[in-house]
Simulated assay, not measured.
Amino acid sequence: MKALRFAALGDSLTEGVGDPVGSGWRGWAALLADGLTPAEVPVEFRNFATSGAQTSDVLTRQSPRALEFAPDVASVVVGVNDTLRAAFDIEAVAAHLDAVYGALAGRGALLLTACLPDPGTLLGLPGALARPLARRQRGVNSVVHALSERHGAVHLHAAGAHWAADRALWSADRLHPGERGHRQFAARFHAVLAATGKALGPAPDVEPERPGPTRAAGLWWLATAGTGWVARRCADLLPGLLALAADEVRHDMRGTGARLDLRASAGVAAALASVSGLEVPLPACDHGTGVAGAAPGTSQPCEVCP
């Protein structure tokens, strides 16, 4: 009997970080794989995801290998690492994802996608630091939503789900799900697939095999591995993030914070227009004389708005 082929692409979330089994990681995609088919139909699962991967890595390194595998089902869950880089570019994110989605769906694979919570909230950062990251993640999620619809993907809305905010689901590092979280992610993906008749096997068990991380484990992670992680991210992201935070504070003091949201919305609209070739409406600024924060070449910027 022909096996169903399932390829998982993405970053550490899909790699399975936070759900250790033996000397490696398991993760939500591996848990989901067993529920895609009835017991008599085998599943051949390949996990191409790697820690730290950005959308560019999925396009250039993972998708060629996945296409060689010729999957029947392919998950692409990525984008958080893009938001954590100083050189964040929503148009590049859109172009990368559009190319990956199109290549996999074009080969006949059932495409699975998901939007995710923003890392600033998960890490508990102060408001002025968290809001720019949240705005970036909302932009990525908007792109994922639009391109998922364009390429006929089965999409899991995980960004604002109440279960995603449950600290018991997350590992000691506060950025990756623990075993319980990976099981929830797999079970909810299975439910979406089963509702459309695309998952024919049993739903993944949501009860973990191991206890969740303690507060002491979280402190130990921060004092050991977490210190290196923060240092690496700070070297790349922190200078730019501090500048974003200063801009956030300045707009808060002037009562013009909504303009930052308008600017981000304009960026998302321009990004989607660049990959779809469609005219995407851009939000008007407060003064009606242009588009707040419009990207160069997309519209006439307002001469009043900063």
Rank of each mutant, 00 (worst) to 15 (best):
Pro177Tyr: 01
Glu209Cys: 09
Leu193Lys: 04
Ser274Cys: 10
Pro239Ser: 08
Asp286Gln: 11
Ala165Pro: 01
Arg46Tyr: 00
Thr214Trp: 01
Arg188Leu: 13
Ser148Ala: 15
Trp221Glu: 02
Ala191Asp: 15
Pro281Tyr: 04
Asp236Phe: 05
Leu200Gly: 04
Arg233Ser: 02
Ala216Tyr: 02
Arg250Trp: 12
Leu122Cys: 07
Gln184Pro: 00
Ala271Trp: 11
Arg61Pro: 00
Asn81Met: 08
Leu222Ser: 07
Ser299Pro: 02
Arg210Trp: 13
His162Asp: 14
Thr214His: 03
Gln300Val: 14
Leu244Met: 10
Leu97His: 04
Trp170Cys: 07
Gly212Tyr: 12
Ala172Trp: 12
Ser75Tyr: 01
Arg254Cys: 02
Leu112Glu: 12
Gly79Asp: 03
Leu9Phe: 04
Asp11Pro: 02
Pro204Ser: 06
Trp163Gly: 09
Glu91Met: 09
Ala114His: 04
Pro211Lys: 14
Ala294Ile: 11
Leu200Arg: 13
Ala30His: 03
Ala130Met: 09
Ala194Phe: 09
Leu32Cys: 11
Ala128Leu: 12
His251Glu: 13
Leu175Gln: 07
Ala165Gln: 14
His96Cys: 07
Ala217Trp: 05
Leu112Val: 15
Leu147Asp: 08
Ala114Gly: 04
Ile90Leu: 15
His145Cys: 08
Ala70Leu: 03
Phe6Asp: 10
Thr113Cys: 09
Arg5Leu: 10
Asp286Thr: 07
Ala172Lys: 03
Val58Phe: 02
Ser142Pro: 00
Arg180Cys: 00
Gly181Ser: 05
Ala105Ser: 14
Leu219Arg: 13
Ser299Phe: 09
Ala70Lys: 13
Thr50Ala: 11
Arg150Met: 09
Ala158Val: 06
Gly10His: 12
Ser12Trp: 01
Gln137Gly: 04
Pro132Ser: 11
Asp173Cys: 06
Lys2Trp: 12
Ala191His: 05
Leu9Tyr: 04
Gly197Leu: 09
Val230Lys: 07
His155Val: 07
Asn81Ser: 05
Asp261Glu: 13
Val291Ala: 02
Ala292Tyr: 00
Asp173Ala: 05
Ala109Tyr: 04
Ser171His: 14
Leu156His: 06
